[in-house]
Design a protein around this nucleic acid. Structure first.
Length: 428
DNA sequence: CGAGATTCATGTGAAGTATACCTTTAGGCTTAA
DNA sequence: AAGCCTAAAGGTATACTTCACATGAATCTCGTA
């Protein structure tokens, strides 16, 4: 007995030593970051590299606002991480500063349509615009028409030029259709003392094909396409930010080239490159390493994709998670190899019906309300929009028509995602 | 044997329902004169 | 009488359901070569 206690004592003491050591090490190790915020995606740099021409273009288009004239509507296309938002913000900041100091009446409203809580329906967008105009409105209880009237009124009362920036407008169009755009473009003729210009930003070039031709032509008064950065440019950007973000001599010289190589591999996504660099730094910090090594970039690369997917999955409502779970489960099949008689798991597309059956079964077991097939069909489409799954509609002739649904995850994540879903849904 | 009809499984649009919020209104109660 | 609180009534958006019809190629049917 005594012996045991003594043993325990030793163990505790030893553990404390370990911890102490760890903390000592942590404190003594040179800090990696100087200013991490520089690498955050919402950071607005003073100078934007390799985008000077675009910035000038945007400035030219929006400049009339400073003369109390209505700038043309502007549409900006470009893949993620090509600097669209950064450039626009940069120009807008400048413009509103000038407007402010010279007392030119100008109002800038900027909305990111992708932030889900903010806005994913027509109603909520208008609500958000009104909020930024300084008019809080109830989240329900008023008809959309009423809301539009309020919007006219609010803008009219401002008696100034209003620049309305809709970032990631594609996700809005996908979810709520083009009616908002149509209505917004038609506000102008009704305004007497104010004017509104719309700046739309989108990653998805194809979405605009689906909108009404009239809307399209009136929005595309001016159009700008952002081309992706190449590896060299990304390297420049990273280098620039790294100087501010990290303490000197912390980065292994291989790190930045490798980081930009990873990002360029996709399509020149600068945001991703920065994220990767920051994450690698954090990993190095956590490991207590006093240098960021290329290996850290590799780890970060693997983990960022994973984190993104897991975030998306975790933030889904229960029903969506269940459907997702059913899709993954039904797309995994066991195959007996006749020669070796071993079981191997293979992954092949499922169908709506199979998913629905499985969904029903599990939902009943869990005591969750089961939704109709119609609704599940819509949920499947929404999961596709989120990029978690892919599907195509296939007609199997005599055997009907269905979606062939496949899971859009890297194979290595299947197990983990399943575990997460199981946990969230408390499936044993 | 081939053209046209049939069939299956589910896609898809429209309309209806339940629910969650929100404002307005009508009492009902309190309070101050 | 005026003020204030509360509950009921009347709106709306959203998520979901129900109903009805649309799809499209494998399969079937049947007339014809």
């Amino acid at each position: 007995m005594e012996h045991a206690i003594a043993d325990l004592g030793v163990q505790v003491e030893k553990k404390r030593d370990d911890l102490d050591e760890f903390f000592d090490e942590f404190i003594n190790s040179k800090p990696i970051f100087n200013d991490k915020s520089v690498l955050q995606s919402n950071y607005n740099p003073d100078k934007i590299q390799h985008r000077e021409d675009y910035i000038k273009d945007i400035a030219k288009i929006l400049a009339p606002a400073l003369r109390k004239e209505r700038p043309s509507n502007l549409f900006i296309y470009g893949k993620t991480g090509t600097g669209k938002t950064t450039c626009i913000n940069h120009v807008l900041n400048k413009i509103s500063n000038i407007a402010h100091t010279r007392e030119i009446p100008l109002e800038v409203i900027s909305i990111n349509c992708k932030l889900k809580k903010v806005a994913d329906t027509e109603y909520r967008i208008i609500l958000e615009i009104l909020k930024q105009l300084g008019r809080e409105m109830p989240s329900t209880g008023i008809s959309t028409n009423e809301l539009y009237k309020e919007l006219y009124d609010a803008i009219e009362q401002k008696k100034r030029t209003v620049l309305l920036v809709l970032d990631e407008i594609d996700s809005l169009i996908k979810k709520a259709g083009d009616e908002i755009l149509y209505n917004l473009t038609r506000i102008n003729p009704e305004l007497k003392q104010a004017e509104i210009s719309i700046v739309g930003i989108t990653n998805d070039l194809t979405v605009m094909d689906t909108v009404d031709a009239r809307v399209k032509s009136s929005l595309n008064e001016e159009e700008l396409v952002f081309l992706p950065y190449n590896a060299v440019q990304i390297q420049d950007i990273l280098g620039d930010r790294a100087i501010m973000a990290f303490h000197s001599e912390v980065l292994d010289e291989e790190v930045i080239p490798r980081c930009s190589a990873y990002a360029a591999r996709e399509h020149g996504d600068a945001r991703r490159a920065l994220e990767l660099l920051r994450f690698a730094g954090e990993i190095a910090e956590r490991e207590g390493s006093d240098k960021v090594l290329p290996g850290h970039i590799d780890t970060a690369d693997k983990k960022t994709e994973r984190n993104r997917i897991i975030d998306v999955i975790k933030s889904q409502p229960k029903q969506f998670q269940l459907v997702n779970y059913a899709i993954i489960k039904t797309s995994m099949k066991e195959k007996h190899n006749l020669v070796t008689s071993k079981k191997t798991q293979i992954i092949e597309p499922t169908t709506t019906g199979a998913v629905y059956d499985y969904y029903n079964k599990v939902a009943k077991e869990l005591g969750i309300v089961t939704l109709s097939l119609r609704r599940i069909s819509d949920i499947i489409i929404e999961l596709e929009v989120l990029g978690l799954i892919n599907f195509k509609i296939v007609s199997k002739g005599r055997y009907g028509r269905t979606r062939f649904i496949s899971v859009g995850l890297p194979k290595t994540l299947y197990k983990e995602v399943l575990d997460i879903l199981r946990e969230d849904l408390s499936i044993s």
